[in-house]
Design a protein around this nucleic acid. Sequence first.
DNA 1: AATGAATGAGTATTCATTCAT
DNA 2: TATGAATGAATACTCATTCAT
Lengths: 192, 192, 192, 192
Amino acid sequence: MTAPASRPAPPQAPRRPRRYDPNRSERLVAAAIDVITEHGVAGTTHRAIARAADVPLGSTTYHFATLDELLTAAFTAIADQVADALEQRMRAAGDAEEALAVLAEHLSQDLLTGNTLLLAVELYVAATRRPALRAVTEAWMQRSRRALELHFDPLTARELDALVEGLVLHQALSTDPMSDEQLLHALRRITR
Amino acid sequence: MTAPASRPAPPQAPRRPRRYDPNRSERLVAAAIDVITEHGVAGTTHRAIARAADVPLGSTTYHFATLDELLTAAFTAIADQVADALEQRMRAAGDAEEALAVLAEHLSQDLLTGNTLLLAVELYVAATRRPALRAVTEAWMQRSRRALELHFDPLTARELDALVEGLVLHQALSTDPMSDEQLLHALRRITR
Amino acid sequence: MTAPASRPAPPQAPRRPRRYDPNRSERLVAAAIDVITEHGVAGTTHRAIARAADVPLGSTTYHFATLDELLTAAFTAIADQVADALEQRMRAAGDAEEALAVLAEHLSQDLLTGNTLLLAVELYVAATRRPALRAVTEAWMQRSRRALELHFDPLTARELDALVEGLVLHQALSTDPMSDEQLLHALRRITR
Amino acid sequence: MTAPASRPAPPQAPRRPRRYDPNRSERLVAAAIDVITEHGVAGTTHRAIARAADVPLGSTTYHFATLDELLTAAFTAIADQVADALEQRMRAAGDAEEALAVLAEHLSQDLLTGNTLLLAVELYVAATRRPALRAVTEAWMQRSRRALELHFDPLTARELDALVEGLVLHQALSTDPMSDEQLLHALRRITR
DNA sequence: AATGAATGAGTATTCATTCAT
DNA sequence: TATGAATGAATACTCATTCAT
């Protein structure tokens, strides 16, 4: 009886005659990463991913049977990418001193730049409740430690890794983050 | 003849003739903490909290206008409690060396025991998207740092704090966590 | 780019300011029975029931946590109703001969009239996969048999019951159904 | 660097290099029967059938334009098989008395053994809403009646048929089913 | 002051069917 | 001739929040 005041324009998408689209899976993974970055794992839904990838909703579940599967694929991609970067840097370092400098670079370039660190924290929490993601974090940790062990003894490698984690987390949350020098200083300290 | 003979259980819990119930707010906050612990922030709903507190659903929104408000109250309670503990320990320490030992204790007793650390990580992530929670984490960090500065210079305090964070996170996720001695070793190292 | 040719009128319901509505549960059960009758269990969805009861979708799951619960309530209501009718008839019969006549009446009036028989068959099939419904059919059978045993020995009661079942099913599916006399004839035969 | 290292399992089954496969239609029908048996008509989907037949999804709609067509083929196969069996038995019987014994055999061997009876009930219900299936049930009934009329007058044949139906249904649902002797007893009774 | 009922928006997932290759 | 990919509609269910009593 009370007529609706204003009817919003229908969200009729601009006709998408798309049909053939190879590597749509990859696009979906990329879109998932974007969505996690912007809305967190909690805000990552099939719908949001489909919108970000500009594909119909049904497409997401066609390529990845469950949302968990898609999240796992996304975080695996991220972890692999970061672990690759660290390995490469470590292999390029000549000695322990250089390794430290290179690690600081990794921290500020690979982890603190972009949204990697944010994604890492999201992964940590998500992994708490999801075994599949748990495996991803463990593999990532392993690779990081191995890379550090190219230049440090296992004990130091482990401590370094933990410190890096903490520094990253603090930077993520702090209102006045540390400078690169401060970061390096912290790393140097823990290695004697 | 028409009336269904047996009706299914009512959606709400049986008969709850409760009426007068002071400090129901406190009970709700406690229940919220339990729920966050068990299901994560993502799984924390009015319904789950009401069930955990054994109060009617309507009661949750009566005492806390919104879910965010309830979450904030819960995390504030946790942060205050942990910060209190650290302050007390730090005040009890005679010198820097003792302070380190006491910090290791804080780590293993206050943070790694129980679910505090798990809750802390949940808070970190939740804070990323919720300004209200962001304020909680910042206040917590401030208090931690101040407490550490009772025995360490600001720079060291900061690094220590970050290391603690990282160690806590690693312990949370690692399949083979560090011993108390290893933790202390790491802390000692960073303070020279 | 290709503008949608015709936009159908939005299905904007005529503003339902309904709020207070006691015995909505009962209305939902009744609506469920209607929907099962018209579309079968397979076509019975929350949406269809909500539409039939003229209540919002969310209301169905508020009153009955799952669709199974609602189906169970619906079939229980039907079974109770039919069993009540048979019991009443049997109690009113003076001797076995009268009981047979009365049973024929039950068959043609209570079971074949309306959609009861259709509903019964739906129940049978649904019960195959749903334990909760299985209990409903068993209780119904028990009551029917007890009612028949007021006038017949257990063996005959059982055979009568089976015959009734078969007759009902055949009537449901046959293009040229039996007359009332034919039905009575069949019943009489099996009791000697 | 951007490509995800490991992709999840593809939605379709592994690598199926099948190509030439005569009588795939038959395999599909057989698979459909299996699926109906296990999950009911309601749970019978293209996907489930494709999985059961170990053929690609597209194959199901290639050989049978629609799911209804596939269901019809499946139920026709079953009905034909059971009707064949009854006809053969009836033709082998010398007189009415033998025919009854043979009918009891049909009941316990052809209908109650295996899943035939379950399938029959599924068919009954499905037929209520699907004209195509309705035709299948009618043809089946006709053939049964004709077979019985080899030894009984039309009226008796009809009543026998109904009783068989009812007995089958009861056996299907009862927790304590009748013995073969009880079944025969019931059949004998209705034929005087 | 308290709460059971109500509701609209949103969630993951399933699926019949279509179609490009 | 076959089939993997694609898609739009539908499904059961959840939930924050509102509100009448």
